[in-house]
Amino acid sequence: MSDLAKTAERYLEIWNEADPQVRLEKIREVWTENATYIDPMASVSGHDGINALIGAARDQFPGMVFSLLDTVDAHHDVARFRWGLAPEGASEPLAIGFDVAKAGPDGRLEAVYGFLDKLPG
């Protein structure tokens, strides 16, 4: 597994972290200081902005877990991967997304571009 594939897995672990302070510490480890996250419903930058966005998503979908749906496809400094959001142990995700992540020279994420393929009703 490439380092960027491991980073993508850590990225999803951050989305599953309930404690905002622990989550912020993990964000600082995985994301560059001025990193951006953009999807159809949000555009944020910086550690605090990313943390607030993830916290809001967790509040909107309590008890849900993000998980990889396929293997991470990575080359050079770019990775793409599909994720699902569902209650723990569910067989079918309620939401499905596709993210493209770009890493900086130090291996931390500089940008993530999210696409939403399926949203809960």
Rank of each mutant, 00 (worst) to 15 (best):
I27Y: 04
I27K: 09
R28I: 01
R28K: 15
E29V: 07
V30D: 00
V30G: 00
W31P: 00
T32E: 15
E33W: 03
N34E: 15
N34L: 05
A35D: 06
A35T: 05
A35G: 14
A35N: 05
T36R: 06
T36H: 01
Y37F: 15
D39R: 03
P40C: 07
M41Y: 14
M41W: 11
A42I: 09
A42Q: 10
S43W: 12
S43P: 03
S43T: 08
V44E: 07
S45F: 12
G46Y: 02
H47T: 01
H47D: 02
D48G: 00
D48W: 01
D48Q: 14
D48Y: 01
G49L: 05
I50T: 04
N51T: 04
N51R: 01
N51A: 12
A52T: 10
A52I: 02
L53K: 03
I54T: 09
I54N: 00
A56Q: 15
A57K: 09
A57H: 12
R58V: 00
R58Q: 15
R58D: 01
D59C: 04
D59Y: 03
D59F: 05
Q60H: 13
Q60V: 02
F61K: 04
F61W: 15
G63F: 06
M64P: 11
M64Q: 15
V65D: 14
V65P: 00
F66Y: 12
F66N: 12
L68R: 04
L68F: 08
L68T: 02
L69G: 04
D70K: 11
D70P: 01
D70F: 03
D70M: 06
T71L: 09
V72P: 08
D73N: 13
D73P: 00
A74D: 07
H75C: 06
H76V: 05
D77C: 02
D77E: 11
A79N: 11
R80C: 05
W83D: 10
L85Q: 03
A86V: 03
P87W: 08
E88F: 03
E88K: 12
E88H: 08
E88S: 13
G89Q: 12
G89P: 00
G89S: 09
G89T: 06
A90I: 01
S91R: 14
E92N: 13
E92G: 00
P93R: 11
P93T: 08
L94G: 08
A95D: 07
A95P: 12
A95V: 02
A95I: 04
I96G: 02
G97W: 10
F98W: 14
F98K: 05
D99P: 08
V100L: 15
A101L: 12
A101G: 12
A101Y: 09
K102S: 11
A103I: 04
G104F: 03
G104R: 07
G104K: 09
P105R: 10
P105N: 11
P105L: 06
P105A: 13
D106K: 07
R108I: 01
L109W: 08
L109R: 05
E110R: 13
E110G: 06
A111L: 10
Y113I: 11
Y113G: 06
Y113A: 10
G114I: 04
G114W: 10
